[in-house]
Amino acid sequence: MKKTLIPLFTVLLFIDQATKIIVKNTFMLHETREVIPGFFNLTYILNPGAAFGFLARMNENYRQLFFVLITLIAIAAVAYLLYKEHSMKLRAFSYTLIIAGAVGNFIDRVYIGKVVDFLDFYVSDYHWPAFNVADSAISVGVCFLMLDLFLHKRSEKK
């Protein structure tokens, strides 16, 4: 399983960082380009907070330190779980997605102080908060982890 997880981690991290570099180099900050009218834009945003702008208004120095420390703790905790539960394939896959996403956003926080977001889905005037490949990896990883925990709990009952 380890032979597939390291390449998965590497590919996800590469795609995340490459797409962010492309956006930073080809868009002006807050520039929007329509991709699918009425549904999807590419919009260059720098998110100082966490998901949905959480803590975006906090003092910048404290916010930066908080997110760096929390991210390092989270990466270490998930890496420990991956090490302990590596034989559970779906769970290990989930942890790898989560770690790859966390590392991708961690890189942004360390080098830029904010996270580059650019995927902007919307319907009419309602816009889902912009996100990136790392956020997607974390979200998909959490969904697979919940599925695995649910399936594991059901198998324990039988």
Rank of each mutant, 00 (worst) to 15 (best):
M1N: 08
K2G: 15
K2I: 14
L5W: 12
P7Y: 07
F9N: 07
V11Q: 05
V11L: 15
L13I: 09
F14G: 10
D16C: 02
T19P: 03
V23G: 02
K24P: 00
N25K: 13
T26E: 11
F27T: 03
L29H: 07
H30W: 10
H30L: 13
E31D: 08
E31I: 09
E31W: 06
T32I: 13
I36Y: 00
P37T: 03
P37V: 01
P37N: 08
F39M: 10
F39C: 11
N41M: 11
L42M: 12
T43L: 05
Y44Q: 03
Y44M: 12
P48H: 08
P48L: 10
G49W: 04
G49E: 10
G49P: 06
A50I: 06
A50C: 06
A51I: 08
A51K: 04
F52C: 08
F54I: 14
F54P: 00
L55C: 07
Y62D: 13
Q64S: 15
F67N: 02
F67T: 05
T71Q: 02
L72C: 15
I73H: 01
A76F: 09
A76M: 10
V78Q: 05
V78F: 11
Y80F: 15
L81D: 12
L81H: 09
L81Q: 11
E85D: 12
H86W: 14
K89T: 12
L90N: 08
F93H: 07
Y95E: 03
T96C: 09
I98K: 04
I98S: 04
I99C: 11
G101K: 04
G101D: 08
A102W: 04
N105Y: 06
F106M: 14
F106W: 07
I107C: 07
D108V: 02
D108P: 01
R109Q: 01
I112D: 04
V116Y: 10
F118N: 01
D120I: 06
Y122N: 03
V123I: 15
V123D: 00
S124Y: 12
W128N: 04
N132M: 08
S136M: 10
A137M: 11
I138S: 02
S139W: 03
V140A: 10
G141Q: 03
G141T: 01
L145F: 11
L145A: 03
L145N: 10
M146F: 15
L147Y: 12
L149C: 11
L149G: 04
F150I: 12
L151W: 05
L151P: 00
H152Y: 12
H152V: 06
K153H: 14
K153D: 14
R154V: 09
R154T: 07
R154G: 01
S155A: 15
E156C: 12
K158W: 02
